[in-house]
Structures are given as structure tokens and as C-alpha cells.
């Protein structure tokens, strides 16, 4: 049996037997990325909606900045958070570096522009379509905001999934601020990088399979959301 096939069998065995190390790593990865995604949704959607509906000084600069930061390299986000949380940084006294919370912060910074920029687009598209009707009914941008968020919920769900997909798959930021410490800050992507460097492919392949399964699930959810939106909302 070739080493590659042997590693694949071992990876399958790790998944099927729900190996405790594997489960711990997957659990931590999901907790960090879901936490970062939830935070980014809470902060990013209102920012996106405000940028879509209201005119204020600096709005155009904000929109350009959000669009530009959608392509923020994860290592840059990691470096930024590292500098802030390191012992000599402004928030170093909190002692958060090399903790899961630091990884949440790094992923939050990474995906916030994605969630905010895509939310802005969704809300703006809906506002463009609804504006005259809503204003005719007596609703200005402020009163229209909850309506637009509700009517755009399926599209916004897709936005959140895009943010989650980006967070769960990134390696650079969590490596820098988490330190890849076993049983503390070791995520799927950092473990894959480490195990490949060590030449131990079984765990790396098992985690790779799970990551791909997650990516497929996220995509499946996006398609399901679109299907539901078309069926119930006529979107």
C-alpha cells in the first residue's frame, strides 16, 4: 500500500472513530470561526445598512475602504492584531495573545469588511427597488431599515455564510495570534500546516476532508437559501 493511500485510510479511521484530538481541533475551529462570524454579522450588517441608506460625510471613503479591505490578506490582519495584543501593544495588558479570543478578534477583523461591504450591496439593491414605494407609504430610510433587512434576509444569510467560509479556511491570522498551541489554539488549518511540515499526513488529510465537507455544506446552504428565497419571496 502506498504511503498516500495508507494516510488516507488512517484519515478515514480518525474521522469514523471520532478521534478525540481531531474532535477537539474541529470544535475549536468551529467555535472561533462561528464566534467571529456572529460578531462580524452584528457589527458589519448595521455598518453596511447605514452606508447603503444614509448620506454622511466620509460615506464614500467608507464604502471604498470596505470594498478594498474585502481582500485583506489574513497575515496582515494577524499582524495587526498581534501588534495590538502583544505585551508592548496598547491592549497587551489584557493578556489575550495566543488565546482563542485573540483568534476570534483576528478573524473578526478579516471578515468584517466582507460582511459589511456585501450587506451594503444587498441593502442598497433592495432600497433602490423599494424606495419610491416605501417613501410613498411614509417610510424614510430609518423606518425602512428593518424592512430592508428582513426582506433581504436570504441574501444576508448568504453574506454571513461567505464570511464564515472565509474565516474557517484562513490560516495566516490564527497562526500569528494563536501560536498553534496544542489543546489551546490549534485549529484545523494550522494543524494541517504543522502536520504536513512534520510529514504526518493522516491527521492533515482527515482535517482536509472535514474542511472540504464544511465548504460543501456552506455552498449547499447558500443554494438552499436561494431556493427558499425564490420559492417564498419570489426573489
Amino acid at each position: 500500500m502506498s504511503p498516500l493511500v495508507e494516510a488516507l485510510w488512517q484519515a478515514a479511521a480518525l474521522i469514523l472513530h471520532a478521534d478525540s484530538d481531531l474532535a477537539e481541533i474541529v470544535g475549536l475551529s468551529l467555535a472561533v470561526s462561528l464566534g467571529a462570524t456572529a460578531l462580524a454579522a452584528l457589527v458589519g450588517m448595521p455598518i453596511g445598512a447605514m452606508a447603503a441608506l444614509f448620506r454622511f460625510p466620509g460615506r464614500r471613503a467608507l464604502v471604498v475602504l470596505l470594498d478594498a479591505l474585502m481582500g485583506l490578506p489574513p497575515v496582515v490582519a494577524g499582524l495587526f492584531v498581534y501588534l495590538i495584543l502583544s505585551r508592548s501593544g496598547p491592549l497587551g495588558f489584557l493578556g489575550l495573545l495566543y488565546s482563542p479570543l485573540a483568534m476570534v478578534i483576528a478573524q473578526f477583523i478579516l471578515i468584517l469588511p466582507i460582511v459589511a461591504a456585501l450587506s451594503r450591496q444587498v441593502v442598497e439593491d433592495h432600497w433602490r427597488e423599494y424606495e419610491e414605494q416605501l417613501r410613498s407609504l411614509g417610510a424614510g430610510p430609518g423606518r425602512a431599515l428593518p424592512t430592508l433587512l428582513w426582506d433581504g434576509r436570504f441574501s444576508l444569510f448568504t453574506v454571513v455564510l461567505a464570511g464564515f467560509g472565509r474565516a474557517i479556511a484562513e490560516v495566516g491570522a490564527v497562526m500569528i495570534v494563536g501560536g498553534n498551541i496544542a489543546h489551546v489554539t490549534r485549529t484545523m488549518t494550522t494543524t494541517i500546516a504543522l502536520e504536513v511540515n512534520k510529514g504526518q499526513l493522516a491527521l492533515a488529510m482527515a482535517l482536509g476532508i472535514i474542511l472540504i465537507a464544511l465548504a460543501v455544506s456552506v455552498n449547499g446552504s447558500v443554494h438552499a437559501a436561494k431556493h427558499v428565497a425564490q420559492r417564498w419571496g419570489g426573489q
Binding site: 419610491e132 424592512t147 426582506d151 419570489g234 426573489q235
Partner: peptide
Amino acid sequence: AMVFQRPVMLR
């Protein structure tokens, strides 16, 4: 109230 040429329906 106003009714538009192309009705705008909420989702």
C-alpha cells in the same frame, strides 16, 4: 397614496 406602473411588492 400612489400606485406605480410596475407594482413594488415586498418579499
